[in-house]
Structure formats: C-alpha cells, structure tokens
C-alpha cells in the first residue's frame, strides 16, 4: 500500500513536472544548440526579454518599498481600528483569488483609451494601456500579496519592544527602522523580493490583456512564447521557455538558500 502511494507520487511528479520540462528541453534542442542561440538572438526575443527584465526590475522595486510600508501599517497602524484590519487583510489576498486576466481587464476598464482616466493620461502624454506602465501595473497587481504575506508574520512575531527601546534611547523613527527593524526583517524582505521577481517573470495573463502583445513594443518573454507557439515556431517557443524555466530554477534555488538564512535568523534570539 505504502509503495503504491510512493509510486503514485513519483508518477505524478514525473508527469506534471519532469516530462513537460524535458519536453521543452527536447523541443528547444531539436535542431541543436545553434538553433536555440539563434532563436534567443532574434531581435523580437531580445526585445521581449528586455521588456520582461524592465518590468521585473520596476515591479520588484515598487513591491519592495510598497510592501514594507503596507506591512508596517497592516501590523502596527494605530488607525486600523476593529473591522478595518481584517477587511484590509482580505483585500490584500484578492490578487491570489482573482484570475490575472481579470486583473488586466480591470486596468483596461480603468485606464483604457476610451475611459476618462485613460484619456486624461493620454493627453498629458502618458500612455498606460498597451504600454509599459499598464504592464507594470498589471504585474504589481498580481504580485502585490507576495511581499506582504512574507513580511506580516515576521513583523507580528518581532513585536515592537526593540523599536520602543530604540526610541527611549533617543533614536528617531528613521534611525530606528534602519538600525533595529531592518536587520530583523531583512531576509524576509529579500525572500519576498525573490518571490516577486519569480512571479513577475512568469506573469502572462494580466500582461497579455494589458499589453496588446505588440511585437518589439509591448511583447514580454512569456507573451513571445505564446506568440511563437501559435505561429508554429516551436523551436523558438521552446528556447525562450527553456530560458525562462532556467531563470525560475535559479531563483527557486536562491529562495531555498534564503529560507534557510531567514530561519536561522529567526531562531537566533
């Protein structure tokens, strides 16, 4: 009985994780390494990877700062009376529950060219939908909870007495944050940033809706894979997918290492 379960687990693991990845590997390598290199060096590939990179960079930075500020308010905000805190807590998780496509759609409905806000921004020369700002917004929407969900439990466990001690010793809020709070939440923040980056690289649905998937303009690596596979350009699709997969694996290994650091730090009290 026990060996049956083990067998089932291994089978499932092979079926949904190992095989697809091997499939990508085989698909990409079907015409040799030169083909992979060529597929990745296409101008549209390079552009798409660059767009993805820019989005990941901006989103990770935004999420880092916003996530820390938001988490601090979530845990400690004195103005969050009674029912407000649980409500906010639920809203933070909304992007987990809602399909990214709907997230993207909401941005189009809000900032599309035919809407009041969209028209306003377009007039001042700031295009949101079918442009980078909209894609960044869509990705922030999707990744927003990751940082907060990492930080809130750490901040809750940390408590405030060390910060209070810092204040009684004459330190202002900024010094207290950087000298006392930051060293204790540092690894949780890094972990949240890595999670955000990993999720942002792989984001597809929301970005596809918002970007319009315009080649060499708003196409990201994931939407390029989609485009290539529709165009039956399987070697190219698999090559880009392979690169994305490898990046994800690196980030995952990095996360594993970081988790260990984070736990070590938590338990060194």
């Amino acid at each position: 009985m026990r060996s049956l379960f083990i067998l089932l687990t291994v089978l499932l693991f092979v079926l949904i994780l190992v095989l697809p990845f091997l499939g990508i590997l085989a698909g990409a390598g079907a015409e040799g390494f030169a083909a992979i290199y060529e597929a990745l060096m296409r101008p549209e590939s390079l552009h798409a990877l660059q767009v993805s990179f820019i989005i990941v960079l901006i989103v990770t930075l935004c999420n880092g700062v916003l996530g820390i500020l938001f988490s601090l308010q979530m845990v400690r905000g004195p103005w969050l009376a009674g029912w407000l805190r649980p409500l906010l807590n639920a809203i933070v998780d909304l992007p987990f529950a809602v399909s990214p496509v709907i997230g993207g759609l909401m941005i189009i409905l809000l900032f599309g060219p035919n809407t009041l806000l969209g028209a306003f921004f377009e007039n001042v020369g700031f295009k949101i939908v079918f442009a980078l700002p909209g894609m960044v917004m869509a990705t922030i929407f999707v990744t927003f909870p990751l940082m907060i969900r990492e930080l809130v439990p750490v901040l809750t466990e940390l408590g405030q007495t060390a910060e209070e001690a810092s204040a009684t010793l004459g330190a202002g809020p900024i010094r207290t944050f950087f000298r006392v709070t930051w060293p204790s939440i540092r690894w949780a923040v890094y972990y949240g940033l890595a999670l955000t980056a990993a999720r942002a690289i792989g984001e597809f649905g929301a970005v596809l809706v918002v970007s319009g998937n315009i080649v060499k303009q708003t196409q990201t690596a994931t939407t390029l894979v989609y485009q290539d596979s529709i165009d039956q350009n399987l070697v190219a699709a698999n090559s880009v997918a392979l690169l994305l997969g490898l990046i994800s694996i690196v980030i995952l290994l990095f996360l594993e290492w970081m988790k260990k650091r984070k736990e070590d730090q938590l338990h060194a009290h």
Binding site: T161, A162, A165, T168, G170, A171, R179
Partner: peptide, 16 residues
Amino acid sequence: QDRGIGFVFQHYALFK
C-alpha cells in the same frame, strides 16, 4: 526620543 528617559523592558528588548 526627546524625553531623556531610560526604559528597561520586562523582556529586556535587547537588540539581538
């Protein structure tokens, strides 16, 4: 921070 006091907490609150 400007009151010029010293405070000792029940659970020490040392900077770990």
